[in-house]
Simulated assay, not measured.
Amino acid sequence: MKGRALFVCNDATYFTAHRSHIAHRLLREGWDVHVAAGGDFSQLSSAFERHYLEVERRYFSFRNDLLLFLGIRSLLAETEPQIVHLITMKPIAAGAAALLTSSGRWAKLPRILVTFPGLGRLFDNRIWAYSIPRMIICRTLQVLFRNRNCHATFENSDDRDLFVRLKILEHRQSTVLSGAGVELADFRAARPQERAFRVLWASRLVRGKGLVEFVQAARMARASGDEIEFLMAGYADPGHTDNIPASEIDDLIRDGAVRYLGHVKDMPELLASVDALCLPSSYMEGLPRILIEAAAASLPLIASDVPGCREIVQDGLNGIILPDNSAESIYRAVKRLAQDRALATQMGSAALRKVYADGFDIGSIQDQMLEIYLGDR
């Protein structure tokens, strides 16, 4: 056994879908891998040593967050890992505090890695209620990153640059990766052309992802008599403060302007059946996985002008960056591609070239992560 690695994530389902391939790579490399998370463990591989944590994702709670801190601290003492990888904001904050108060084991940890899939609501200055938690977390991370063995990964350069400006860490202590890794070869372009133009919205059913505006754009298209099909696919996220309740989803789809597909497991098949992907998000995204998957399927990308989306969408080259998140802007972008299918095909080809050229594939991400774990960065 080369050593022991401990992953700490807020949600086991998220970890399984987006990060478990890195843990499996460590297993193959001879490491003993432990995964601690909240949520549903039914899909989490039994190849890992699994530890359940109670993680409150919706809001800050002194009691629940204290219990999370104590749980991680106890795990550090129990497992004595050589690598600690903290993923998503709550585990990062609680894990950093646990590491800083585990002084007896601090010197034994050769590598501490924190991964920010996106900064989310906590670093949104428009939400004043998060100002005090944000200040506390920033200070805790500043202290953590005084240790040379700490490294951070981000999914876009805007987030990394913000942390450098806030003096949380130094530039050399961070790496910007092209997402969490996608099996690009699973996706293909196989779209028939003798039908109405199809545009897809796919994400969690949370308000900040622009679903309401997407539906409004679909209603505009129908009122104008455009031959465009608007499709939406996704799943509820009750643990998220922005989750759209089922009753509101029913209202959005009742008039039939958008066809709701529910939670789709076979994304390669779905993406091969549409002509464009639209994500009008207002979130502080990391790097949305759906944009990478759509690019791998040779789809033109329509997205907001926000960090994360800008990492992959090149306006006018492989997609369209929206000037704002309004329904009118979404409608105009979709109609432009629907009226010029040659342009849509050209943009889709450029999107495919970008994801293969810029290291978005799962193998590239794994190789870079191993370098970070071993202190080669």
Rank of each mutant, 00 (worst) to 15 (best):
V33N: 00
L109I: 14
V212Q: 12
S273Y: 03
E213F: 04
L99Y: 05
V33Y: 03
R146F: 07
G225P: 06
F41H: 04
V33W: 01
A94V: 07
H18D: 01
V215H: 02
E54Y: 06
A338P: 05
G319L: 04
A223K: 13
I87M: 00
R332Q: 10
H171D: 11
S131V: 05
L277F: 15
R73C: 08
C150A: 08
R50Y: 11
I330Q: 07
T79H: 05
D251K: 15
V274L: 11
L44A: 09
F187V: 09
K354P: 08
A272W: 03
V55N: 02
I87Y: 00
E311T: 13
I372H: 00
V182P: 01
S174Y: 11
A303N: 06
Y130D: 04
Q82C: 15
A217R: 00
S61I: 13
M135G: 11
M284K: 13
T79E: 05
G118M: 02
A77P: 01
R336S: 14
E328L: 15
S298A: 10
P110C: 04
M284H: 13
K90P: 08
A97F: 02
L144W: 05
G181H: 03
I168V: 15
A98S: 10
A276W: 00
A303G: 14
I253D: 04
I83G: 01
F154W: 03
A296R: 01
H18E: 01
V306A: 06
A47H: 15
Q142L: 02
S74I: 11
S224G: 09
D255H: 14
H85Y: 06
E155W: 11
R219N: 06
A5Q: 00
A152D: 03
Y130K: 06
R191M: 01
H51P: 04
I112A: 04
E248L: 13
V258I: 10
V199T: 09
C309W: 07
A152S: 13
T140A: 08
Q366N: 12
T241L: 07
E293H: 08
G225N: 04
